[in-house]
Amino acid sequence: MNTPTNLKYSKTDEWVNVDGNIATIGISDYAQDQLSDIVFVEIVVAVGDTVKPGDTLASLESVKAAADVNCPVSGKVVEINEALAQTPEVVNSDPYGKAWMVKVELANTSELETLMDASSYEKYCAERSH
């Protein structure tokens, strides 16, 4: 399992990469592995939408499972990855790169403190793998 140390992670398996006041959001390697082959990605927010923690950002479907991508932060959507609809498989092959989903302009940076760092997230995943 790949868990880059420069990212923050949520309990629902999203990763957040903060650059200035812009948070880029996707799903973790652990999550894509659990879902197996992703066949459908639908981003359900649009540029300009205001989002808060817990809001649904995207819906994912694999052959055997379905999952929502939840927003870990609050703010305003500034960019979405439209290419994903055509290439859902990159969620499996490149979850931290090409499979970024939404960029949010942060409204409240203190929310980031509630997220896990890479080592706590790895521990959290290991606990669930029984």
């Binding site: 459908f40 052959v63 379905a66």
Partner: peptide
């Protein structure tokens, strides 16, 4: 196919 839309998964 596209069974992930359906009640037994969702």
């Amino acid at each position: 196919t596209l069974t992930a839309r359906e009640q037994h998964i969702k």
